[in-house]
Amino acid sequence: MILICWGLWGQSLWAEPALQTAPAWAEVEGCATCHRFSPNQPESTAPDLFYAGNKFQQDWLVEYLQRPTVIRQAGHTRDPGFLQGQPDFTGPHPVLKPKDAATLAAALMTLKLPDLETVALATTPLSEGKKVRIKILFERDYSCIACHESYNLARQPRGGVSGPSLIDAGNRLQAEWVYLWLQQPKIFLKKGRMPVYQFDEETLLNLTRYIASHKKESGNKN
């Protein structure tokens, strides 16, 4: 689960140069208690936010901060109770008012890694047939379903819980970030629990589009 501070932030505090520590607003409001705002900070038990502006969709952040949902059923991978299935942190995540959520989301979107590769992705939706073929890659060839929740054909969540749920990945994540994560996860996380893959470009693009097609809104089938 993402833990993010709550309160009011002044615009003047937002713009930070390349971060070596948490930005002032995060320190003041307590965000940095649980989240890292620089890879140089000691590891924490909540998701890193120093690349939040690369990773998340702003609309999702605004919604999440008002109505937090569980993204990692087993807790964060750095939580001491993670492998026991009994995470120390069980929530609840702080809830913000709409205006504060919008303010904080905007601040988070300014947090980006410098010099990230620009990725051009096709925006046309996947055909149903192609989606089915990539679903087989996702579940069968690359075993993603062992650790990540996805949808079955009846559109019910199904899959492991050690990785973040992907059932709303298309709402939550920027497709470009998904692409880079699948291609070079170490850009974002020095050592993660996910296997390293060496996808060819076509597979990379297909998996990215497939993951980005996972949306929660009614009417958007996975």
Binding site: A74, L83, A146, C147, G159, G160, V161, S162, R193
Partner: peptide, 23 residues
Amino acid sequence: YQFYCAQCHGLKGKGDGINARFL
């Protein structure tokens, strides 16, 4: 083993990791 494998195979290797019941 603990860091990667235990997610599925369990901390003591008994096949009871946190993903096990969802597979």
